[in-house]
């Protein structure tokens, strides 16, 4: 019964003091928030920490949620800010978060893993692998657009950018994803031969 309530109805219950309603909100959005966190953290432990931090921050600021946008858009803006802060902290050890070379390591690790896990490979596996190899911003935009049920305007709001910028970034992200997907599939075909 509880799960049929809308986000706004659950928020009203939380603000009235029903903490169990917040657990329902968390359950509803945790997969997507965790996936977005994975786009930045590249490790389950860090991603869980980011996702947990996001839900705690959202709980603290729930009373200030203006309801002019979807709750999910507001929540994703928290995820994006938290994840960017996480990346900046981690940047002390790396050169740049915008540097695609940073992610070559991840790419190579994935390739090494592929050989031992050939049975599990499917088109979906390669797609997720290619997304992991994208820059965090590209992967976030692609994920929000295809899985977050967010319009370009809503993605722009969550990421603090202009809608036109997001449109251009989405186009480029799709191109890069397509290239990486093709490269991974070719690489795999070569290994099988």
């Amino acid at each position: 019964m509880q799960s049929k309530l809308s986000d706004i109805e659950l928020i009203d219950q939380v603000l009235a003091g029903n903490q169990a309603a917040y657990a329902d909100l968390v359950k509803r959005h945790q997969r997507f928030v965790f996936t977005l966190a994975m786009r930045f953290a590249k490790g389950r432990e860090d991603a869980e920490e980011i996702a947990q931090d996001c839900f705690i921050k959202a709980y603290r600021s729930l009373a200030s949620f203006q309801r002019q946008s979807k709750f999910s858009t507001w929540l994703y803006s928290i995820v994006y800010t938290t994840a960017m802060t996480f990346l900046r902290k981690r940047r002390v050890d790396t050169d740049s978060i915008d540097d695609e070379d940073t992610y070559i390591q991840v790419e190579n690790q994935s390739s090494a893993y592929d050989v031992n896990d050939a049975e599990n490979k499917s088109r979906s596996f390669y797609l997720n692998q290619a997304i992991e190899q994208l820059l965090p911003d590209d992967a976030t935009i692609i994920t929000m657009f295809y899985k977050g049920e967010q319009s370009l305007e809503e993605i722009a709001q969550a990421m603090g950018m202009e809608a036109n910028t997001i449109k251009v970034k989405l186009f480029r992200a799709r191109q890069r994803l397509k290239e990486k997907l093709e490269r991974n599939l070719k690489h795999e075909a070569k290994e099988l031969i």
Binding site: Q19, Q30, R31, F34, A47, E48, Q52, L177
Partner: peptide, 27 residues
């Protein structure tokens, strides 16, 4: 075809205790 394929991407699943951990952290 690419658009259809991109839409099939899977979401990652956090640990079983995720919700519990969040609520406990808040408490």
């Amino acid at each position: 075809a690419l658009n259809t394929e991109f839409a099939t991407m899977e979401l990652d699943e956090p640990s079983m205790a995720f919700t519990y951990n969040v609520i406990e952290a808040i408490r």
